[in-house]
C-alpha cells in the first residue's frame, strides 16, 4: 500500500512537470485528485488495512495529496509566466487618439526636408499682394502677353489682388534678403477658376529661389534632379527641356514619366507619356535689376510647381475640392 501511494505520487510528479498547458494540468488533477481519482481510490482501500496500518497510510495519502496539489499550482503559475497559456492577440485594442497631419502638410514637410539638405531656408509672404510684387517687378508689366487678363482675383482692382503664384515671395525675397540665399516657399495662391474636380479658386504652389554669385543652369538642374529623385524615387524618368516663362532666362521645364500608363499614353498624361511637373530657369536679368541686383555680377535660379496634383497623386484623391473642404477622414 505504502509503495502504491509513493508510486502514484511519483507518477503524478512526472506528469505534472511535463504538462505544457493548463488543460493538461486539469486532466491530471482529475486523474489524481478527482472524485474517481487515484488518490480517492487509494483512500477507499484504507478500510481493508489492519488497524495498525490505517493511521500511517492515511497520513502518507494526505501528504501525497498535498504534494500533488502544490505541484499543480506551481506548474500552473510556471506555465502562465512562460506565456504558454492560451492567449488571443487578435482582440481589438483601445487605441489612443493620435492626430494626423493634412496630406498637403505631409507633402510640404517632405519637400522642406529635402531642400534643407541643400542649404535652403523656408520662407513665406503675404497672400493679399500688390500688382507690383505679383506682376510688375516679375518682368510681367501691364499688357505683357504672359499676363492673363482674367484669371486674377482682385481685392481692389487694379493694384490689390490675391497672389496668383508664389513668385510674389520671390520678388520680396530678392528685395529683402541679402545674397547669398536659398529659399523654398509653400503657400496658397488664387486664381479666377470655376470650381470643378481639377480646378479650384485656391491652390497650393511650391517655389524655390537661390541667389548667389556663380549659380548656373547646371546648379539648377542638379538641384532639381536631387529633389525629384529624393521625392519621387530614383527610378522615375526625367525630361528637362527648354520652356519659356517670362520670369526666367534661360527657362526650363521638368517633366516626369507618366506612372499611370508607363509612358504608353493615357488620359492622365493626355497621351504624351510625360507629366509636366515644374517650371524653372535662371532668374530673368530684368527681375534682378528691378530688385537692385546687377545681373552681370550675381545670378540666381528659380523654380515653381503646383502642389495639389502631387498631393492628390500621392494620396489617391481624385477631386481637388476634397483637399480643402473637410471631406478627408483621419483615422
Amino acid at each position: 500500500m505504502r509503495e502504491d501511494i509513493i508510486n502514484t505520487k511519483n507518477q503524478a510528479f512526472s506528469e505534472i512537470t511535463e504538462a505544457s498547458d493548463t488543460a493538461e494540468l486539469e486532466n491530471i488533477r482529475v486523474t489524481y485528485l478527482g472524485r474517481q481519482g487515484k488518490i480517492n481510490s487509494l483512500t477507499k482501500e484504507i478500510k481493508n488495512l489492519n488497524a495498525s496500518e490505517k493511521g500511517a497510510a492515511g497520513k502518507i495519502i494526505n501528504e501525497a495529496k498535498e504534494t500533488i496539489e502544490k505541484l499543480l499550482a506551481t506548474q500552473k503559475n510556471k506555465l502562465k509566466q512562460t506565456g504558454s497559456e492560451w492567449f488571443d492577440p487578435t482582440i481589438p485594442g483601445e487605441k489612443p487618439k493620435a492626430g494626423q497631419l493634412h496630406p498637403t502638410t505631409i507633402v510640404i514637410n517632405e519637400m522642406f526636408e529635402i531642400f534643407k539638405h541643400l542649404g535652403f531656408s523656408l520662407m513665406e509672404g503675404p497672400e493679399i499682394e500688390t500688382d507690383v510684387y505679383n506682376f510688375e517687378k516679375l518682368n510681367l508689366p501691364k499688357d505683357h502677353p504672359a499676363r492673363s487678363l482674367q484669371d486674377v482675383l482682385y481685392i481692389k482692382e487694379p493694384d490689390i489682388l490675391l497672389r496668383s503664384h508664389t513668385s510674389s515671395v520671390e520678388t520680396r525675397a530678392l528685395g529683402e534678403l541679402k545674397p547669398p540665399f536659398r529659399i523654398v516657399v509653400a503657400g496658397k495662391c488664387y486664381r479666377f477658376e470655376s470650381v470643378n474636380a481639377s480646378n479650384n479658386a485656391m491652390f497650393y504652389q511650391f517655389q524655390g529661389v537661390a541667389l548667389q554669385k556663380g549659380l548656373s543652369m547646371a546648379d539648377l538642374k542638379g538641384t532639381l534632379y536631387y529633389f525629384v529623385k529624393s521625392f519621387f524615387g530614383e527610378k522615375r524618368k526625367i525630361r528637362f527641356r527648354c520652356k519659356y516663362y517670362p520670369e526666367v532666362e534661360p527657362g526650363g521645364g521638368l517633366d516626369l514619366d507618366c506612372p499611370f500608363c508607363n509612358q504608353k499614353g493615357c488620359s492622365v498624361c493626355k497621351g504624351r507619356g510625360w507629366l509636366e511637373m515644374l517650371g524653372c530657369g535662371m532668374i530673368h536679368p530684368n527681375i534682378l535689376k528691378n530688385m537692385g541686383h546687377n545681373p552681370k555680377e550675381i545670378s540666381g535660379f528659380a523654380f515653381g510647381m503646383g502642389l495639389d496634383r502631387i498631393v492628390m497623386d500621392k494620396f489617391k484623391i481624385k477631386d481637388i475640392r476634397s483637399l480643402y473642404n473637410g471631406d478627408i477622414i483621419y483615422k
Binding site: L118, G119, S121, L122, M123, E124, L177, P179, P180, F181, R182, I183, A210, Q212, K213, G214, L215, S216, M217, A218, D219, K221, G222, T223, Y225, Y226, F240
Partner: peptide
C-alpha cells in the same frame, strides 16, 4: 547641361 549638386558656399539659414 550637367547636373551639378550645389557646390558653392552654403548660405546662412534665414528661416523666420
Amino acid at each position: 547641361i550637367p547636373e551639378q549638386i550645389l557646390s558653392l558656399e552654403i548660405p546662412k539659414l534665414v528661416t523666420p
